[in-house]
């Protein structure tokens, strides 16, 4: 049985539950998990129940990296570090927004831990509000499309680059839609000494508005359209990318999600889709995806 046990309260088709399961599949029992506040934390631990088959701690929304660094320091001080892996699993809000300072501090100090961002591109736990991981023109409850708006006006923050700039020995992107690839990267991140980072793209059926049975399909479309490039960086240098054979146009990814529906119905929408296509084209060029 998975170390993330059944009976939790995740939605059917939940990307976070998949991510949590894959992380524990990769790391095994000798792992301590730190969660910031978020969907994964809430739906796995309705007191007195817990879905976690490994030691798990949640403190606050913005401090998971600091808590994880304290766990690591304590294990070292108590002579219990041995091979125990410490992993923080946070959502995009907890990682790119409110927890950024604590993450920067923990990476600068060089603790031996892995931070995994499960990025579903908005504050899903509080009801689909935009975060700095929300992509251009996604409609959320705080960046809704409207008569004079195409939705979220900002581009997604490039978090892997920020972590790489801290001198992290290993930064990777992954997707819940490519489980073997994700598991391999999480395992590698945990085995490398020092602070390492895996940024996992995680389609949220509730927030992105698609059927719960389509999580993997939507995740694959993000990769196949180059909206989510899969790559590894070692010591700041891109060392491995997942190449695309027959890249699809971004419309194929956008049209299956309710959060982009307005781009296909509003006047001028097709012009705006070109801007999203330009993001995918930049990814292809920057990471050499083709």
């Amino acid at each position: 049985m998975s170390l993330l046990k059944p009976g939790h309260r995740g939605c059917a088709g939940c990307c976070d539950a998949l991510a949590g399961k894959f992380v524990l599949d990769a790391l095994g029992e000798d792992t301590i998990v730190v969660s910031p506040t978020g969907c994964l934390e809430v739906f796995t631990t309705p007191y007195p129940e817990s879905a976690w088959g490994v030691p798990w701690v949640h403190s606050l929304f913005e401090n998971a990296a600091a808590v994880a660094s304290g766990v690591e320091a304590a294990l070292k001080a108590l002579g219990r570090k041995n091979h125990t892996k410490i992993v923080a699993i946070g959502g995009d809000g907890a990682t790119l927004d409110i927890g950024l300072q604590a993450i920067s501090g923990a990476f600068e100090r060089g603790h031996d831990f892995t931070y995994i961002c499960v990025d579903n591109e908005a504050y899903m736990n509080t009801g689909i509000q935009r975060s700095s991981a929300t992509p251009l023109y996604a409609s959320t409850t705080t960046s809704p499309s409207g008569k004079v708006s195409f939705g979220n006006p900002q581009h997604k923050k490039n978090m892997p680059a920020i972590i790489a700039a801290h001198g992290s020995p290993y930064v990777a992107t992954a997707s819940v839609a490519y489980a073997p690839d994700m598991i391999k990267k999480v395992k590698k991140a945990a085995e490398i000494k020092g602070p390492t980072y895996v940024h996992v793209h995680a389609p949220c059926c509730t927030g992105w508005k698609f059927e719960g049975s389509k999580t993997i399909e939507v995740g694959r479309l993000a990769v196949e359209t180059a909206m989510w490039p899969l790559y590894e960086m070692e010591n700041g240098v891109v060392t491995n990318v997942r190449k695309l054979k027959n890249r699809k146009p971004v419309e194929e990814y956008l049209k299956v999600q309710g959060r982009f529906k307005h781009l296909f119905t509003m006047e001028g929408g097709s012009e705006e889709i070109k801007k999203i296509q330009a993001i995918a084209d930049w990814n292809v060029k920057h990471f050499g995806l083709e």
Partner: peptide, 9 residues
């Protein structure tokens, strides 16, 4: 926050 993690450990 670090002490919360350390103390819990």
């Amino acid at each position: 926050s670090a002490l919360i993690g350390a103390s819990a450990t």
